[in-house]
């Protein structure tokens, strides 16, 4: 393999990997405050892309994306308030089934609104054939947008959780719910906020990636599976782990193209998921003690 080709694969891997990482972090944020996996996480990504494509007809692209992200955050809040908030001590299984139901609901609603056409936002800079040379390889500027946006989101989130009162309260709520409540924290608001945050980062990733990956009403399911694999691989609830695992999965997938047919690309993620669930269910970077804390 030439160096150019190696870099080409590597950049493609990092691009997809950072999207997987964002989806996985979305899983983690909700998992940490509620103990459940929100299987509608992929739908937030789809909504971000679809809404900004529709809004683009009426306004400039930056406004359209911002509005689409805002709308998806509202949808996230509404989902939590309507379907989750009022439940009294629901079982984990019941909540997971609810999120699967929500995912189907959003997907079918999207099919009615947008049909089954494949859509995409235009490239933010240039077009499909614009490229920037990176160490001899040719890289689309949109790829840099995706990687840059995802990195900024990770940075923003870690600052948010570390440096702000609300962020620390969310971590407190995740670490010990009873103690958090008795410190005067309304944990129900923290759960709503976790849905808003997850929806927001998913939607932004969905909008930025759509020029290169395209989007359709049903892309959420596939992304949710990849994101779930990454979340498990990195250790559920562990966001730095999710970044590492996301990049790892993205790069493995990208290089697999040089060895196995393209059609097998998705099978690789699923195979990794199965192996991890059998061998290290607490993930590569998680500790089994931490995994045992949540009833699951």
């Amino acid at each position: 393999m030439t160096l150019e080709l190696f870099i080409q694969y590597l950049v493609a891997g990092i691009t997809y990997g950072s999207i997987y990482a964002i989806v996985a972090i979305g899983f983690n944020i909700i998992y940490n405050t509620t103990g459940i996996i929100n299987f509608a996480q992929g739908e937030f990504v789809m909504l971000g892309g679809m809404l900004s494509i529709t809004l683009l007809q009426f306004m400039p692209i930056t406004v359209a994306i911002a509005l689409a992200v805002g709308l998806t955050m509202c949808i996230g809040a509404v989902i939590e308030i309507v379907f989750i908030r009022w439940l009294k001590n629901p079982s984990v299984l019941r909540m997971i089934i609810i999120t699967i139901g929500i995912s189907i609901l959003i997907r079918e609603a999207a099919l009615h609104v947008w049909g089954d056409n494949v859509r995409a936002l235009p490239y933010f800079i240039g077009n499909e054939i614009t490229s920037i040379p990176v160490l001899g390889a040719r890289v689309s500027p949109q790829v840099l947008w995706v990687i840059g946006t995802c990195s900024l989101m990770v940075l923003f989130l870690s600052l948010f959780f570390k440096m702000t009162s609300i962020g620390r309260e969310m971590r407190a709520c995740a670490a010990n719910r009873t103690a958090a409540i008795l410190c005067g924290i309304d944990t129900r608001n923290m759960v709503t906020l976790s849905f808003i945050l997850s929806a927001g980062i998913g939607a932004l990733a969905g909008a930025v990636m759509s020029p290169i990956t395209y989007t359709q009403y049903d892309i959420g399911t596939g992304l949710a599976i990849k994101g779930f694999t990454v979340a498990i691989l990195g250790g559920l609830g562990n966001s730095p782990g999710a970044v590492a695992a996301g990049l790892l999965l993205g790069v493995i997938e990208a290089f697999s193209v040089s060895m196995v047919p393209l059609a097998f690309q998705d099978a690789i993620a699923i195979a990794i998921l199965l192996v991890i669930l059998f061998v290290r269910p607490h993930g590569l970077f998680g500790s089994s003690a931490a995994a045992g804390l949540k009833e699951f």
Binding site: R168, E169, R171, A172, A175, N176, A179, A180, C183
Partner: peptide
């Protein structure tokens, strides 16, 4: 009941 994963200071700040 400590908040795991947070420093002593962060626990108090919450």
């Amino acid at each position: 009941k400590m908040f795991a994963g947070m420093t002593a200071l962060e626990n108090v700040m919450v």
